[in-house]
Simulated scan of single mutants.
Amino acid sequence: MPVRNAIVHHIDKKPDGSPAVLHTRSSPLDVSQAVENLVSDLNESYNSRQNKGWGFFFPESGAYPFSGWLGKFLDGQATFVDFTTQAAEQLTKLMEESNLTVGGHVLFAHYQQGMTDYLSIAVLQQSEGVTVGADLEVSTAHHLDLSHLSLAARINLSEWRTNEKSKQYISYTKSKAGGKRGYDYFRDFLGCQEGIDGPSETRTLLKAFSDFMEKEDLPEPSAREKTGALLDYATAQSKIGQPISLEALSELIDEDRPRAFFEHIRNLDYGLSPEIPADKRTLNQFRRFTGRAEGLSISFESHLLGSKIEYDEGRDALIIRSVPQQLKDQIKRQKEKAN
Rank of each mutant, 00 (worst) to 15 (best):
residue 178 G to M: 15
residue 165 K to R: 10
residue 205 L to K: 02
residue 155 I to S: 08
residue 159 E to N: 07
residue 181 R to G: 12
residue 161 R to T: 10
residue 154 R to H: 00
residue 160 W to I: 02
residue 158 S to M: 05
residue 191 G to C: 08
residue 191 G to K: 03
residue 166 S to M: 12
residue 207 K to V: 12
residue 174 K to H: 15
residue 160 W to N: 07
residue 164 E to M: 08
residue 160 W to G: 05
residue 175 S to T: 15
residue 148 H to E: 13
residue 162 T to V: 11
residue 182 G to V: 14
residue 156 N to R: 01
residue 188 D to W: 07
residue 205 L to W: 01
residue 153 A to T: 02
residue 199 P to M: 09
residue 151 L to F: 04
residue 209 F to S: 04
residue 173 T to V: 15
residue 165 K to A: 14
residue 169 Y to D: 00
residue 168 Q to M: 14
residue 153 A to F: 13
residue 196 I to R: 06
residue 180 K to D: 14
residue 208 A to N: 07
residue 192 C to G: 09
residue 172 Y to F: 02
residue 173 T to P: 05
residue 177 A to V: 15
residue 183 Y to E: 01
residue 206 L to I: 09
residue 190 L to E: 11
residue 207 K to P: 06
residue 148 H to F: 11
residue 182 G to S: 06
residue 147 S to G: 13
residue 172 Y to M: 01
residue 206 L to F: 08
residue 193 Q to T: 08
residue 149 L to E: 11
residue 202 T to P: 00
residue 205 L to S: 03
residue 208 A to S: 02
residue 160 W to T: 04
residue 205 L to P: 05
residue 187 R to S: 00
residue 194 E to R: 05
residue 167 K to D: 13
residue 167 K to W: 03
residue 210 S to C: 09
residue 153 A to K: 01
residue 171 S to R: 02
residue 185 Y to A: 08
residue 204 T to N: 12
residue 202 T to I: 04
residue 185 Y to C: 11
residue 154 R to F: 02
residue 155 I to A: 00
residue 202 T to N: 00
residue 181 R to Y: 14
residue 176 K to D: 15
residue 157 L to E: 00
residue 167 K to L: 03
residue 155 I to R: 03
residue 168 Q to W: 13
residue 183 Y to H: 15
residue 151 L to T: 06
residue 204 T to R: 12
residue 149 L to A: 06
residue 202 T to D: 11
residue 204 T to D: 04
residue 208 A to W: 03
residue 150 S to W: 13
residue 208 A to G: 01
residue 190 L to S: 05
residue 168 Q to G: 14
residue 178 G to E: 10
residue 148 H to C: 10
residue 189 F to G: 07
residue 154 R to C: 05
residue 206 L to S: 05
residue 186 F to W: 09
residue 206 L to A: 03
residue 178 G to N: 11
residue 187 R to E: 00
residue 160 W to M: 03
residue 209 F to L: 05
residue 184 D to F: 11
residue 193 Q to S: 11
residue 170 I to T: 09
residue 185 Y to T: 07
residue 195 G to D: 02
residue 207 K to L: 14
residue 204 T to C: 10
residue 190 L to Q: 08
residue 199 P to A: 05
residue 169 Y to P: 06
residue 202 T to H: 00
residue 193 Q to K: 08
residue 155 I to T: 06
residue 203 R to Y: 10
residue 153 A to C: 04
residue 165 K to I: 10
residue 176 K to S: 14
residue 209 F to P: 04
residue 158 S to L: 12
residue 163 N to M: 10
residue 154 R to D: 00
residue 179 G to F: 12
residue 166 S to G: 07
residue 166 S to R: 05
residue 169 Y to W: 13
residue 186 F to T: 01
residue 180 K to C: 12
residue 186 F to I: 05
residue 149 L to D: 02
residue 164 E to L: 07
residue 167 K to Q: 15
residue 163 N to H: 13
residue 164 E to H: 10
residue 152 A to E: 01
residue 188 D to F: 03
residue 185 Y to D: 07
residue 201 E to R: 02
residue 158 S to Q: 11
residue 147 S to W: 11
residue 197 D to E: 09
residue 197 D to G: 04
residue 161 R to F: 05
residue 157 L to D: 09
residue 199 P to V: 07
residue 150 S to F: 14
residue 155 I to N: 04
residue 193 Q to L: 10
residue 160 W to F: 11
residue 161 R to N: 04
residue 156 N to Q: 03
residue 185 Y to Q: 09
residue 200 S to G: 08
residue 177 A to R: 14
residue 172 Y to K: 02
residue 188 D to E: 15
residue 196 I to W: 14
residue 151 L to A: 08
residue 149 L to H: 00
residue 195 G to V: 01
residue 182 G to N: 03
residue 199 P to C: 08
